[in-house]
Amino acid sequence: MGVQYLLTPAQRFLVPFFAETANNEKCHKTDRSQQGERSFVCYGKRGTVTVVHQYKNNGYNIVLDINSGAVHVVDDVTYDVIPLYQEKNKEEIVAELSGRYEDKEIAEAYDEVAALEAGGELFTEDEYEAYIDSFKNRPTVVKALCLHIAHDCNLACRYCFAEEGEYHGRRELMSYEVGKAALDFLIANSGNRRNLEVDFFGGEPLMNFQVVKDLVAYGRQQEKIHNKNFRFTLTTNGVLLNDDIMEFANREMANVVLSIDGRKEVHDFMRPFPKGAGSYDLIVPKFQKFAESRGQTNYYVRGTFTHYNLDFSRDVLHLADLGFQQISVEPVVAPETADYAIRKEDLPKLYEEYDKLAVEMIRREREGRGFHFFHFMIDLEGGPCVAKRLSGCGSGTEYLAVTPWGDLYPCHQFVGNEKFYMGNVYEGVKNTAIREQFRGCNVYAKEKCKSCFAKFYCSGGCAANSYNFHGDINNAYDIGCALQKKRIECAIMIKAALAE
């Protein structure tokens, strides 16, 4: 039985060596002495691929059974038995490991691994590929719209994919008439679904706040008529935020996203006003007041880290020290030519930062002053079903972006790319080929994702990032993948630590 070792993120840039298995099949390993981590794919008895991922982090030996979602924390002997389990019988494994552990311990560990396998919690086979084929052919409804309420901005952030809010086009504010037609389109295309999400996005939405208020009022009126429930959200850079807007948002917005990058020097360098002054001092007191007024829930302070602040864990902790409890600080996605872009050689430092952040979060949680970090939030016990996990975010089918002119795109990241123009809010989706392309976008449509241990937690990654780096929505953005895997490892480790 052949065993093919895959590389964990931390190993991906080490030079691997090759060994031969007993039956002379090529076995691709990495030097464990440097990292103490491994991820492997074993070929099951019926030829189907079963996948287990095991790694060490912060003193924990963690084993993830990919296809069942079971997570096990194991001792050293079990950690060493698992990779041998499908290759050798009990006696052979005892003989192989007897120099390092007591025979009785090895035999016990073997029996426990066998019990996990019998219980469907280890070496579970991947039987989902045929299943997802039928799922992707289901009829879908539109569940959410991202309204580009303002293609204009009062900041000049260096990394903005919207180019100061213009999205490769001209400055424009969405009119009430276009917004109203968008809500009508959503209601008409949502089938029997009751809960509908509308994100007020930009640019800077508060530059068109009267239309935001008018559209919320229209939505509240229409939801009674059509038995719908609108869940509105708002993203803002905080420049125009005031008490009246906070009061309105606390009444009407299910979630607000407040853009801030972290430490003052980091934030002001990347998020200046057009004339160069920083925005940190203006927005921080307002954001603190806003977060408190929402009871420290149903919001995120959301930042971006770049090549210029690879020590981003300090920015996360700075935001926590400012009193924020819902925090997301995310890697910039930028062309490789951008000076602030994350590069392959930055990855080891970023892994270290995620590890440091995870350890500090555990410490603070135990001290009763914990906070949430968006990319470490993982639900091991609940979470969505397999169908959702494999079919991705819903862009292009269930989620669409609307420009100030009423044009439809698969998501906010595709706005301005005419290849992805889908139609408009008056005539609906005219380019159904794009919708079908996105409907078929799932984990099994992506070669890189099929055997990845993270597939049930990332759903194949971001279609826009894939397109921007590979010209194909059915690929994957490699640096994003590497960081996602690391974050999942850290998130599971935090669960293990807090379960003690």
């Binding site: 997570v71 996990l116 979470g383 397999v386 759903s459």
Partner: peptide, 19 residues
């Protein structure tokens, strides 16, 4: 078990619940 402790198969998935 003595050697194993088991801990536990629109979006923009890992933390989402049907609820």
């Amino acid at each position: 078990m003595k050697h194993v402790k088991t801990l536990n198969l629109t979006s923009c998935v890992g933390n989402q619940s049907c609820e």
